[in-house]
Amino acid sequence: MAWHDVSDGGPLLIRESPLESARFGCAVQRLTVPTGSGSGYSISAVREAVAGSPGDVIVLRYPAEHVGWFAELTTLGRTAVLADCLVYWRLRVGEGRTPEPSRDLRTTTSVAPTAVRELVSDIFASYGNHYMANPLFEAAKALAGYREWALRSATEGRCLALRSRSEREGEGEPRLLALATLEDTVDGSPTEILLAGVVSGAQGRGLYAHLLKAVEDRTRARGGKEVVISTQGHNTRVQRAWARYGFEPVQALLTVHLIRSRLLRGPER
């Protein structure tokens, strides 16, 4: 979901999530309450949408300012699991506090599928994402989903990586040090960083700022005006890096998994 979504106040619609359903072996649906001054949704609209859902798990996201909604969600006949608080940050292109250029780094948009999978597996192996709150979802399958997500971005040309000119790996190839996958359009919407990180063996060397600069440069070249990025609220380390670079916090969304309670019961004796 893009952070800047707005709505005309029509009915909330639950979307099927076939990839997640296949991955986790249960019927997963998504329900996102749009944000913005024009949305005007209440908990009653959520209640109505949930009541008609046949899904096993509904991944619900809504603006965090609705602090009273979670108590209401516990009365909908499902088990409500508070999964995360997703925080969004924004950078106005041209305002980034860019690092000094490095002769050892090169930005590339061509990353082999095998390399994408390896990078994501390394960078996000221990990332505390919202799937981890749900006992029905296995951590290994969630990580596989991140790999698939990144691979789709790479095959569509929406991927940036940093290579080292001096460090080499298998068969003399320059070593890949960092990866960012993106979502952007040509209609003036912000470029959204979907996944971004530095490989574990290269962290602490200031490379993340170079990765953000590569995204900002790409956005500028495409005529974009803003870059947005999000993470779970607990991930304060990366949020400090965003603040140092020039990003500012703009929005928070709560994620709640609404689970059919019978799925959480142990086998009957």
Rank of each mutant, 00 (worst) to 15 (best):
V50M: 15
E65W: 09
V50D: 12
V46M: 02
A45C: 13
V67R: 11
V46Y: 06
P63G: 12
I43G: 00
G68V: 01
V57Q: 13
P63L: 05
V57W: 10
G52Y: 15
D56R: 14
S44Y: 07
S42E: 11
S42R: 13
A49W: 08
A45W: 09
S37I: 06
L60G: 05
Y62T: 03
D56N: 15
I58M: 04
V50C: 12
V50Q: 13
E65I: 05
G52A: 15
G55C: 12
G40R: 15
E48H: 07
G40L: 13
S42K: 08
S53W: 10
S42H: 03
S39Y: 01
V50K: 09
A49N: 05
S39N: 08
R61D: 09
Y41F: 15
V59P: 01
G36P: 00
G36N: 03
S37C: 11
G38P: 02
E48F: 01
E65V: 12
A64F: 06
S53G: 05
T35Q: 03
G36A: 04
I58P: 04
V57A: 08
L60I: 07
Y41H: 13
I58V: 15
A49D: 04
E65R: 10
S53Y: 12
E48A: 10
A49K: 07
S53E: 02
E65H: 09
V57E: 04
P63M: 09
G36K: 05
P54F: 11
I58H: 05
G40Y: 10
I43Q: 00
V57G: 06
R47N: 07
S37M: 05
E65P: 03
L60Q: 05
V57M: 08
A64D: 12
G68L: 06
E48D: 05
R47A: 00
W69T: 05
P54C: 14
R47S: 01
A45M: 15
P54S: 10
W69S: 00
G40E: 13
R61M: 03
S37Q: 06
G52M: 12
V50L: 13
Y62H: 06
L60A: 03
I58W: 07
P54V: 15
G36H: 04
I43R: 02
G52H: 10
D56Y: 14
